[in-house]
Amino acid sequence: MSWFWRGLRAGVLTEGPAPEALPESLSPGLPRATEFSTPAQAAEIAARCPTGALEAQDRVVGVQPDRCVDCMRCKSAQEWRHDVRWAHPDAVERFGSRFKHSIHVRIIDAGDCGSCLNELAQLTGPSYNLHRFGIFITPTPRQADVLLVVGPVTRQMAGPLKVAYEAMPSPKRVLAVGACAASGGIFGPSVMSAGGAADAVPVDLTVPGCPPPPLAIIGALRALCGQEPPA
């Protein structure tokens, strides 16, 4: 059992969920590629998706997780995964050990709807206690190692976002949290929104979900810091 789960179990107010299958109280889950009995059925399921996250190829409906906005329309048909290790599998090798200890994270709201920020607020609370991993939220970009972006990057926030990124010392990482920051989500790309954080700053890792549950965000932060393989 990794420290991640051991730590979560130890907390007084923290209930220890099994890593393999999180209950819906902690995470809505995420759709995954599913095989259907006929191509027509697969096409019907894929057509339900409002953001093009689902794509039918023959009898299989594939998923682009970054585009999923949790509309729940495919939930009765598509299979959903209930783990939280949603970030990219090669993250640890990619980022190495330089970021292992005492990481400071600067959050930037680039047009979020409030829910992503609300899940981030939970991270430092008693239920998730992010600090035990040596990860801290900092108010200033000048001390930050990781820039955590939420929201699709509205045209009027693109400037301040770039300024914050520039102000960070190197080496630095960018984590795009939520469907909006990962792909534009339900809002972008459009007349007033970009298609996510990558349109403004170089993104290292994305966390899908609308909003991603706190445990998925913690998993991604730890992966980004080289603390634990994300998948």
Binding site: E24, S25, G29, V69, C71, M72, K75, S115, Q122
Partner: peptide, 16 residues
């Protein structure tokens, strides 16, 4: 309250 919501409808913020 978020967990109660998620448990009931599958989404902590009652989307969908």
């Amino acid at each position: 309250f978020l967990r109660i919501s998620g448990e009931l409808c599958g989404h902590r913020y009652l989307f969908g």
